[in-house]
Amino acid sequence: MLEQVKDWDDDFYERWKPIAMGFVNEAERCLQCGKCTGQCPAAAVTPGYNPRKLIRDLVDGNIKRILSSVELWQCFFCSGCYSTCPMDINFPFFIFMLRLGAMNEGYGWEDVKQLEAYAEKDYLKDGITVSIRERNPFVVDTVGDIGKIREAAGLPTKRVVSKRGVAEINMISDLSGMTSFMKKIGGVDLLDCNTCDDAQARRCKTKPLPSKVGKITTKTRFYNYGEPSGGKTNAKT
């Protein structure tokens, strides 16, 4: 489909670099050699994700397409691209900063909502992001009470972060605007297998794996930036 180059934001990248605090240097060095995409685990399992093209669009200034793409949210953050990049472009940092930009435009909230709960209910509450609460019914059946295993290993039944520690990270969160941002985005409820009822446990255990596993074919793979849900509606709030 014909694109109008005049619609691109020619100096977006130049303007953005200082705002992004030096996390996103050197994209203009990109040779478009494709070494990043060649080793990319996300590119291997999705039809459209392609780090090389994201860099291309960024340097061209086709920023609208990047921010509104579903591909932006498919990066694995494995740093494989950075480790092989012949020009030392630290691409995961680009994704990180671009996602912040996308959320500003109202995109990607659905994704972040899933994760906000870990910050709100675990990190800021206990000081530990991965909590003792278990969200996998099979694991509960096999492992049982983690507290007992900790005791047997000679550790306290529960790892507790001091009240002062928790208070301090909450203070950082409040002062830096993280708390208000979390309120704006909102979060989802997280289940805890240790406290849920049998019916819920049954539902979780019989939930099939995502249908794509082991069945992805190559015929659908093309440059196919889609539009994620919620963008324009969220941007208005």
Partner: peptide
């Protein structure tokens, strides 16, 4: 929480 984009670098 940072790379889940809940916390910005400022946090």
């Amino acid at each position: 929480v940072t790379f889940a984009n809940v916390a910005a670098p400022t946090a």
